[in-house]
């Protein structure tokens, strides 16, 4: 029997039998390695403008030099790091808020649930990108502030997902037993509810990082970040005015490829995890 559908196989064995998970995880690992090794990989400082502008690729500049005299390979690695960092910050903060709100809502119900879920409805209705554009255009805050603002606006989807599953879990006998034993709210939530919903966090995290990377690329493409900050979206928009030159294969294509691989990695992870853990979709996958 295929290990993916064997209920007795361990979680990791089942995940590792899913090609989407393996491809997504490998892509993410390769990109992470590229970032970790970047101090040794790139020969130049990405902000150094002393090279010959528009120089084609050579032994010293593997991907050539851009119009500002900056080494493209170094720029690419710095951009990849910044774009991913933005995604990870939004993903982590958004997930933490989602867990907090989702579990609070499901556990206490009543007025706390009402208030938090109405707030979630409100935030779901407001387009986050518009608030980010407004903030970025007016105040030019640091990217980390924008990443956190995006997390503040993007928690409702994960909070709803976690709440709906936590409501079911709340009525399980072992939770009742833990409360019967005299466990406090914090004890039951911390020791039982939170760890048992772990798979949901993986889905929510992968989906959030994917969304945030897409947002960062779009916002930096539109020119809403500090122009000296390296980002994959910015590199693409910098290259676009020169599309008629013969630069596309070493200037235009690499950032597009890296951005695509980055988004693909998190898409595949989200798709694969969702098929395993979201009970509504499990039937569709097995079918």
């Amino acid at each position: 029997m295929d290990a993916r559908f064997d209920p007795h196989a361990g979680l990791w064995r089942r995940l590792l039998a899913d090609p989407w998970f393996v491809i997504g995880a490998s892509l993410a690992a390769v990109l992470a390695l590229l970032i970790l090794l970047s101090p040794w990989l790139s020969l130049h400082d990405p902000h150094d403008m002393s090279h010959v502008p528009f120089a084609p690729p050579s032994g010293s500049h593997w991907l050539g030099v851009n119009d500002g005299g900056m080494d493209m390979f170094a720029e690419l690695l710095a951009g990849l790091r910044n774009t991913l960092a933005f995604g990870l910050i939004t993903g982590t903060a958004g997930l933490a808020l989602g867990i907090l709100v989702g579990l609070t809502s499901a556990w206490f119900r009543g007025w706390a649930d009402q208030i938090l879920m109405r707030l979630a409805d409100l935030l779901l209705a407001i387009p986050a990108v518009m608030i980010l554009i407004l903030l970025a255009a007016f105040y030019r805050p640091s990217p980390w502030v924008l990443a956190l603002v995006l997390a503040l606006l993007a928690w409702p989807t994960s909070a709803r997902l976690i709440r709906s599953q936590a409501l079911g879990l709340r009525n399980q006998p072992h939770i009742a037993a833990a409360r019967q034993m005299g466990g406090s709210n914090a004890y039951v939530i911390g020791r039982h509810m939170m760890p048992e919903l772990f798979p949901l966090y993986l889905i929510a995290f992968a989906a959030k990082v994917r969304m945030a990377v897409f947002m960062e690329a779009s916002l930096s493409f539109l020119g809403l970040f500090d122009p000296t900050r390296k980002s994959l979206g910015r590199t693409i928009s910098d290259a676009l005015p020169f599309y008629y030159l013969d630069i596309w294969w070493y200037w235009m294509l690499p950032p597009i490829l890296l951005l695509t691989l980055l988004i693909m990695a998190f898409t595949f992870l989200a798709v694969s995890l969702e098929r395993f853990f979201d009970p509504r979709l499990r039937a569709a996958w097995a079918g």
């Binding site: 979206g233 693409i236 008629y244 235009m252 490829l257 693909m264 898409t267």
Partner: peptide, 22 residues
């Protein structure tokens, strides 16, 4: 389609521009 879901608009847009327009 799952693969295509991982390709952002920026990527496809620029590639289509390069191939079909340029």
């Amino acid at each position: 389609m799952t693969v295509l879901q991982g390709v952002p608009e920026i990527g496809t847009g620029v590639l289509l521009l390069m191939v079909f327009a340029y």
